[in-house]
């Protein structure tokens, strides 16, 4: 599955991109900007998860379920088990989200289109309803996440940034390997014609289930990293339906063209938000909403389509 993957151009550009972002963020740029890069890389993982689903024309309006679940898994592990090690944190976040995705996947894999979107939304709101009202889960305050450690040593902001870069690179490789595998291709074929795929002897539901779990893991990992980067989790900014909406928005804004697009899009999103909030604190939602409409109308391929226009390797694609 992974054979020769490092020689692929997508992966090389991807690794290069992450390296540059991490180097810029840790050595050159002021700290607040590097925060935006860090949040962008983390959120980008969840967007990558959505993008993978979207390639089968499944759009989840409740992906904040896994994003928030990963984040809360990190918070719970810290509260009850005292876990602050960054490796354990990411593993816990991914595993928790993966298990939840596996269980719910049995139900969701039968659904398509708007029903898939609505059922995802319902599940995410069930979690929200629990988190927002239950005192032992922090209710609407959420919980603080203490700074991450690695093998017992304080990791620091830069260390965490390197770690996030590392996780993102691994995810890029994994996602690319999955998408170019026959399983990955299969799900694109599902989008075209489900019945044909069944005739070919493949189980559509199983293929979707696997895809769904992968997507959940990515979103969970994103939540875990975000929790560590922000130092705080709460249901309104991690699990509410509007957070899911934001993730879908970033997916559209980024474009579905390339596995690197989600990260570019997510970083772009962080910057719009920071600047909009600073210069127009009472209009930042309007700016984001306007951007969303503008992208839908004038840039249907997302930001990535801009890159493609100037991409010197264009010939190699297709």
């Amino acid at each position: 599955m992974f054979k020769g993957i490092l020689k692929e151009q997508t992966i090389q550009v991807g690794i290069g991109f992450v390296f540059i972002v991490v180097l810029l963020g840790t050595f050159i740029l002021p700290e607040w900007m590097s925060n935006n890069f860090m949040y962008g890389l983390s959120r980008g993982l969840a967007v990558l998860g959505l993008m993978i689903l979207w390639r089968t024309n499944l759009v989840s309006f409740g992906h904040a379920l896994y994003y928030g679940f990963g984040a809360y898994a990190v918070a719970m592990a810290q509260k009850y088990l005292g876990v602050t090690d960054v490796f354990l944190r990411i593993i816990i976040a991914i595993t928790a989200a993966g298990i939840l995705g596996f269980v719910l996947g049995f139900i969701l894999r039968r659904y398509r289109e708007i029903f898939f979107a609505m059922l995802s939304l319902a599940f995410s709101m069930v979690l929200y309803g629990l988190l927002a009202k239950a005192e032992f889960l922090g209710s609407t305050d959420g919980m603080s996440i203490s700074p991450s450690t690695m093998f017992g040593f304080e990791l620091g902001r830069f260390g965490l940034f390197y770690f996030i870069g590392f996780v993102v690179i691994l995810s890029l490789i994994f996602a690319h390997a999955y998408l170019r595998s026959s399983l990955g291709h299969l799900t694109t074929a599902i989008m075209d014609n489900e019945i044909r795929v069944e005739y070919l002897g493949y189980s559509v539901e199983k293929a979707i289930h696997i895809k769904y779990v992968i997507s959940a893991c990515l979103a969970g990992g994103a939540g875990g990293l975000m929790a560590a980067a922000l130092g705080q989790v709460d249901p309104d900014s991690m699990v509410l339906w509007s957070v899911s909406g934001e993730l879908v928005f970033v997916t559209i804004m980024a474009g579905l063209g390339n596995i690197l697009a989600p990260f570019v899009g997510a970083i772009f999103f962080e910057f719009i938000r920071t600047y909009a909030y600073e210069f127009a604190p009472q209009a930042w939602q309007m700016i984001i909403g306007g951007t969303l409409l503008a992208i839908i109308f004038f840039l249907p391929g997302g930001l990535w389509s801009l890159f493609q226009k100037i991409n010197p390797f264009k010939k190699e694609k297709k």
């Binding site: 900007m33 922000l230 130092g231 705080q232 709460d234 909030y277």
Partner: peptide, 21 residues
């Protein structure tokens, strides 16, 4: 002067901006 609404996570982000930016 800055706005406190939006919840803890958003405020943490803004707090970091205040300090670092």
């Amino acid at each position: 002067f800055s706005d406190e609404s939006g919840g803890g996570t958003k405020q943490v982000g803004l707090f970091r901006d205040f300090v670092q930016k």
